[in-house]
Each structure stands twice: as C-alpha cells, then as structure tokens.
C-alpha cells in the first residue's frame, strides 16, 4: 500500500513540475490557453487513474494507442501500400509454387521418375501480363525407366584428331527427345508458354 501511495505521489509531483517547466517553455501567445487545457487534463487523469485502478477501471492508454494517435492519413496510406505489396509477393509465391507442382506432375505423368521444375513469372503487378510464365526450367531424372528400357547402344564418340567443334554436338537419346517434346507440348497447351522458353534438361546417371 505504501509503495502504491509513493508511486502515486511521485507521479503527480513530477508531472506537476514538468507541466510548470513546460508552461515556461511555451510561447506566450494564443496557444498558451489550449496547451494549458490539455496539460490540465493530463494532470487530472494522472490524479484519478490510481483511484480507478482500485475500482478496476483503469484507463488503458496502450489500448488507445496514444503514441500514434496523430491520425496521420499519409501513414495509413503507406501502411496499406506496404500491406498490398506483401500481399502481392505472397500471392505470387503461392502461385509460383502451384505452377511448379503442376509442371512437375505433368512431367511425372509422362513417365518421368523424378522432376524438378523452376519457373520465372512476370512479377510486376502493374504490368498487363502479370503472372505470365516467362520461362520454365525442368530437370528430369529418367534413371529407373532407363534401367528397364536401356538405350540400344551407348556409342562412344569417335574422335578424329583434336577437332574441338565436335564437342558441342551431343548425341541425344531418342526416347528422351520424345518425352521432351510431349512435355513441351503439354506445358505449352496449359500455360501458353512458347516452346523456346521451356528448357528441359535430363539428369545424367
């Protein structure tokens, strides 16, 4: 009880001293009346708040959010813009995840054992083509399939001399090419992506 009283008295005394100092500081113009009114109100609240806390009706200033009560509309605008931006990023990330999982499932339907997809999406919200799939990267693993149907013959490349140009030419598996084309067609049908924007690569085992 003594501690409570001590806090109360100290609160009032310091507040009164502060108010007097502030009254010295404020310019002696027309604003003085307004300032006096509100400093007085604050002092009244400081006086009655402990009494109310006994009656369990303490004024909860934190609930009133007095710190930010400036009602500054610009701030609200900024906040809402930030919210909008975070919402858009969330939306695009969810959309991207769904597209990736759909592409992966398309690939798996074609008999691929494991598929990993990555897409680049137009993330500019204000663009007309927002959400358009710009590029698809697909890494396919044919390991188990190829175990059953082995490539007819894996021919070692015959090198003649040191012709480095030959290095660029790759002998591709015809079975892989078929699947590649099928998947490309399907993705193109569903998402409307151009074939040249679909990059499919096979993981070597």
């Amino acid at each position: 009880m003594i501690g409570f009283l001590k806090d109360w008295v100290l609160n009032i005394v310091t507040l009164a001293i502060f108010i007097i100092l502030i009254e010295i500081l404020i310019p002696s113009g027309k604003m003085k009346k307004t300032v006096n009114l509100f400093t007085g109100l604050i002092l009244v609240i400081a006086l009655i708040n402990p009494v109310l806390s006994i009656l369990k009706k303490e004024i909860d200033f934190s609930a009133l959010n007095i710190e930010n009560n400036y009602m500054y509309i610009g701030e609200i605008d900024i906040n809402s813009n930030n919210l909008k931006e975070s919402q858009i990023t969330q939306m695009t990330s969810v959309y991207r995840g769904k597209v990736i999982s759909q592409i992966e499932s398309i690939a798996k339907e074609e008999g691929v054992v494991d598929a990993k997809a990555d897409v680049i999406i137009n993330e500019d919200f204000y663009d007309e083509n927002f959400g358009e799939i710009m590029r698809v990267y697909l890494y396919l693993n044919m390991y188990e399939k190829t175990k059953e149907i082995k490539p007819i013959l894996s021919v070692e490349r015959v090198r003649i001399g040191n012709d480095s140009l030959e290095e660029d030419l790759k002998v591709e598996n015809p079975y892989n090419n078929k699947i590649k084309e099928k998947i490309e067609n399907k993705i193109g049908e569903i998402f409307g992506t151009q074939k040249e924007n679909i990059v499919i690569s096979f993981e070597e085992n």
Binding site: N11, T14, I22, P27, T39
Partner: peptide, 30 residues
C-alpha cells in the same frame, strides 16, 4: 527522471508533443 520514478511515459510524450506543436505554430504565426 521520468523513467527513474516510473512516470507513465504516455503523459510525458503527449505533453512534449503538445509543447512542440504549440511552439512551431506560434513561430510560424508570428
């Protein structure tokens, strides 16, 4: 001092804001 004696900072910051606004307004008006 306000922190030392556990004064409610809400009163304090409001008071200071009021004084600041009053001062700037008076300055401009003069």
């Amino acid at each position: 001092y306000a922190k030392q004696i556990n004064l409610d900072m809400v009163y304090f910051s409001t008071l200071l804001k009021i004084v600041g606004i009053a001062y700037i307004a008076e300055f401009g008006a003069e």
